[in-house]
């Protein structure tokens, strides 16, 4: 039987008390998950934030997520973090060539700009590059 691997991008919020613990190490050792760190930072209040791509068997992935939750890490899926304010977007499309993952695409022939949030890495490049400031980061 072939077990399908799952790959998901998630945002982890570490409260101050967990900021110095080797939590990601346990994801590898105990749950056999591969990880790719897309972004990591510690805020001045010492809350940690990490954007991870996790790959592994679905059952292991679910257990890993359960471990994180029980440890006190707050988890968000990545797509929820970068939002487009549809009212402010003017559909100019200047974001298209700036996004490193190609999350913006032109719908032809109308030339409407489609934002595919599943491709978004939450790098934040589009936020300040958007002339009407329609892209918003919500961590």
């Amino acid at each position: 039987m072939i077990v399908m691997a799952t790959t998901k991008r998630i945002v982890l919020h570490f409260p101050k008390r967990l900021a110095d613990r080797a939590i990601v190490y346990h994801l590898v050792k105990d749950f056999d998950l591969q990880f790719n760190i897309l972004k990591a930072s510690i805020t001045p209040e010492e809350e940690g934030l990490m954007v991870l791509e996790l790959t592994g068997k679905q059952a292991d992935y679910d257990k890993g997520i359960q471990y994180l939750t029980e440890t006190g890490v707050r988890i968000q899926s990545l797509g929820q973090n970068v939002l487009r304010n549809e009212e402010r977007c003017t559909q100019c499309g200047v974001c298209i060539t700036l996004c490193p993952t190609g999350a913006f695409e032109l719908e032809r022939p109308a030339r409407r700009v489609v934002f595919q949030d599943e491709k978004c890495l939450a790098c934040g490049l589009c936020i300040k590059a958007c002339p009407p400031r329609a892209m918003e980061l919500h961590f």
Partner: peptide
């Protein structure tokens, strides 16, 4: 320009617009 790519000095260069075509329509 609207094809999404132009060729400059034999390099393929991606293009984008600051003017909104859907809003112009």
């Amino acid at each position: 320009l609207k094809s999404g790519q132009i060729k400059i000095q034999s390099k393929k260069v991606p293009t984008a617009s600051l003017s909104s075509y859907p809003k112009a329509v």
